[in-house]
Design a protein around this nucleic acid. Structure first.
Lengths: 237, 237
DNA sequence: CACACTAATTGATTTTTATCAATTATAAGA
DNA sequence: TCTTATAATTGATAAAAATCAATTAGTGTG
């Protein structure tokens, strides 16, 4: 754990309000590590030894069953992952691997649980983090069940645009086959859907996406904050 | 809040380890209420005023978008629902309504948050509850993305059988069209899938389900604890 | 019991999505 | 730069699932 990183962590929502003593003792134990791209971090079914906090880079959450595989989510800094497995002391439901070179801080699950029991403010912050994760998956399930694949792709593009302050042009943050899997479709189907969306206000040029008619695209996606987010930031505590 | 109910609550995982003082003050504030079947409790998009704890009966979580609707989950006693919205102070992502006559205890969200901040053991128990909810939705999403509708139905039947200690005969706990929606299919599709499953070891007789060939059904469903549960019970704290 | 109402089923059809096979594009390494 | 490997696209087809329409079954009520 590099000393110069500590002040940055202290400012994260998860650590901001905890007691200095708890924070210092966790920082003593935690260690941060760099991982290369495409590095497996966690296998589904294993037990949680460490809470992972992604500080830099990107991590993909994947699930497999019976020879099938699916991208379940993308984690971006700064967020924890596998917090639920740590708290429940239960096996991971998903595997995790880096997409890019990533910096990850790891806290032993036992120490995490001890700190939670010792420091109510930390516990509340961790709950909020977990609550956000819960809501992310409710949204994912709603998206899958209520929208068809064209609508999901349209909503995804608008969501990405929103995250980048409403730009009309951007590059896809991952390979198309991964995006397809995340959106619950095959690469072939994504490819065709992309072409079909030209009539609805989007053009693709390689990995570049250009929204040519935002209004039209929004009409198709019927963007809804209860599916696409974001949650309102919690100003009050 | 009826006095004779208190000891029962005290034994619930959520309340078992909290301080007596916190428990008593919450019980002072909380009130329990009976609701008739098909009663709307919560509308998606509203803000969380009360944590709901289902003590008796059954509650359905539903989501709507753009004229479409889907059953996202069934809550059975004793569990909380909408804990995440309370903790995050964010709007509900799903609506809730009773399926049967239900007894529900309600705790004002502000008091809940105060109690969490005051009592670390309570916060840890609440986190665990939230963690279970998170994992439920990860499982739901995995089920939708990795299995087709026949496999989902087969897995559902086996799961219900398991919950009832491995019986080979049971009654569906909800209407078929609700089950269809929960499993992400149309009622017509469910009806046909039911018929198709006869070749795989299940018979339906009205609302009665009979597993005629468990091995065969399990081969089809490829039951997996990382999708179908259950989580191992957390004996240790 | 008859009535009305809703749920469930069935058949015919369309739409959506997946699969398979082949080709083209893109990127990384020698 | 050429080579090789992988990703993306395209076309043809099949499978899965949704939709629409009609009928049958089931439920609760007066």
């Amino acid at each position: 754990m590099r000393a110069e990183e500590k002040p940055g962590f202290r400012r994260l929502p998860l650590f901001r309000e905890m007691m200095t003593q708890t924070f210092d003792s966790l920082m003593q134990i935690a260690y941060s590590q760099n991982f290369p791209p495409r590095m497996d971090l966690i296998q589904q079914g294993e037990y949680a030894d460490f809470l992972h906090i992604l500080v830099e880079g990107a991590v993909e959450l994947r699930a497999t069953w019976n020879g099938h595989e699916s991208v379940m989510g993308i984690v971006r800094p700064v967020s924890t992952f596998i917090l639920a497995a740590c708290v429940c002391d239960a096996p991971y439901l998903m595997s995790a691997r880096t997409l890019e070179r990533s910096r990850i801080v790891m806290i032993p699950a036992a120490d995490l649980r001890a700190a939670l029991r010792r420091d109510p403010d930390f516990a509340v912050a961790a709950m909020r983090e977990l609550g956000v994760g819960y809501r992310t998956f409710v949204r994912h399930a709603k998206n899958l069940k209520l929208r068809n694949s064209r609508e999901r792709l349209a909503a995804y593009i608008l969501q990405q645009s929103q995250l980048a302050n409403g730009v009309v042009s951007m590059v896809l943050p991952m390979e198309k086959r991964h995006l397809a899997s995340y959106l619950g479709m095959t690469p072939e189907n994504l490819s065709r859907t992309v072409k079909a969306l030209r009539a609805d206000g989007v053009r693709f040029q390689g990995t570049q996406v250009i929204i040519t008619d935002p209004a039209r695209l929004m009409a198709l996606a019927a963007t809804d904050s209860l599916i696409d987010g974001p949650d309102p930031e919690n100003i009050a505590s």
